[in-house]
């Protein structure tokens, strides 16, 4: 007895598949294989534990407000791509600092960042003869790669370690030259180690930076008298009160190439994630003396969105 049926017995189906022209067969297999693949892909996005993409440093890299961390920007995990964008303002007695930028995270391995820094000299501009409210601008392009370790998992004593490089391009070379800087471009190299010690709810970060930058590069790089790289240190400690709320402190040492009494930086910060994608940071920052104007302490505020 011969009947026409559908679907045919598996053996015939296999034979038919083999005989069907290749493109048709390929189409057939991908349509079934694509669904789980797409679902898997999405699992890598928005996948990080809350706050583990950190906030954005003033130079655009993932980290604390002023210190570079080994974290990678974006909320992607090992097979996804993530992005974070931020706006930062620092209100100081004699200056107003503002920066904004974006950072791309690839597979929680590589970070590419850009930040634009705008430093309003307000009345100091007039006092220094560069003009009332003169704004110093700088572009910072950064790349960071995670070398080893994991911020949260793995050996509790092995931190996440990342190597970073930042190219800083000061857009006010004339001012930099006037204050005695040797260059208006500079490259920083950072090596950072960061670990969340879960047993104490404590995040600890330590970083070394090779730099020639004067006031982060806003006053150029090096000086005619001292144009060598110096090794500087950055540290941070933060206590996790909840998944969404962290309080900590940071330190960043800086060279004084220009002999203007440039000081090390400190801050005390609180970071809060009202949603999975938004991080709000407020800090009390002590930036010391900037261009001979001492006691620059004030509020550091940042809003960041990350995916």
């Amino acid at each position: 007895m011969i009947k026409t049926i559908w679907p045919p017995a598996p053996a015939v189906a296999t034979l038919a598949l083999a005989l069907i022209p290749a493109p048709l067969a390929a189409q057939d297999t991908t349509s079934t294989a694509e669904e789980p693949a797409r679902a898997e892909g999405f699992a890598e996005y928005n996948a990080k534990l809350l706050l583990t993409n950190a906030v954005s440093t003033i130079d655009g890299a993932s980290g604390g407000g002023i210190s570079n961390w080994a974290t990678i920007a974006g909320r992607q995990e090992s097979r996804g791509i993530g992005v974070q964008a931020h706006v930062t303002a620092v209100l100081l007695p004699d200056y107003f600092y503002q920066s904004h930028g974006v950072a791309l995270g690839i597979a929680d391995r590589v970070e590419l960042s850009y930040a634009r820094q705008n430093f309003d000299t307000q009345d100091v501009g007039a006092a220094l003869g560069i003009g009332q409210g003169y704004v110093l601008n700088q572009d910072v392009f950064g790349a960071k790669v995670r070398l080893l370790g994991d911020l949260v998992y793995g050996d509790p004593l092995v931190p996440q370690v990342s190597l970073g490089v930042q190219y800083k391009h000061n857009l006010d070379g004339a001012v930099a030259a006037a204050v005695g800087a040797a260059d208006d471009d500079g490259v920083d190299v950072t090596l950072s180690a960061t670990k969340l010690f879960l047993s104490h709810s404590l995040l600890v970060n330590a970083a070394a930076r090779l730099t020639k930058a004067n006031q982060n590069g806003l006053l150029g790089f090096g000086s005619v008298a001292d144009d060598d790289y110096s090794l500087q240190f950055e540290g941070a400690v933060a206590y996790q009160f909840s998944r969404r709320f962290v309080i900590g402190g940071e330190f960043r040492s800086k060279p004084d190439n220009l002999g203007l009494g440039e000081d090390d930086w400190f801050d005390l910060f609180a970071a809060y994630a009202p949603t999975d994608n938004i991080t709000l940071t407020a800090a009390y920052a002590d930036l010391g003396s900037i261009a001979t104007f001492t006691g620059q302490r004030g509020a550091f505020l940042q809003a960041q969105v990350a995916f």
Binding site: M1, I2, K3, I5, V12, A16, L19, P21
Partner: peptide
């Protein structure tokens, strides 16, 4: 073309019990 050629094969098979 090949598909058309295999159609009779698909249609003329024995149904399983």
């Amino acid at each position: 073309m090949l598909f058309t050629a295999t159609l009779p094969l698909l249609l003329m098979q024995q149904a399983p019990a």
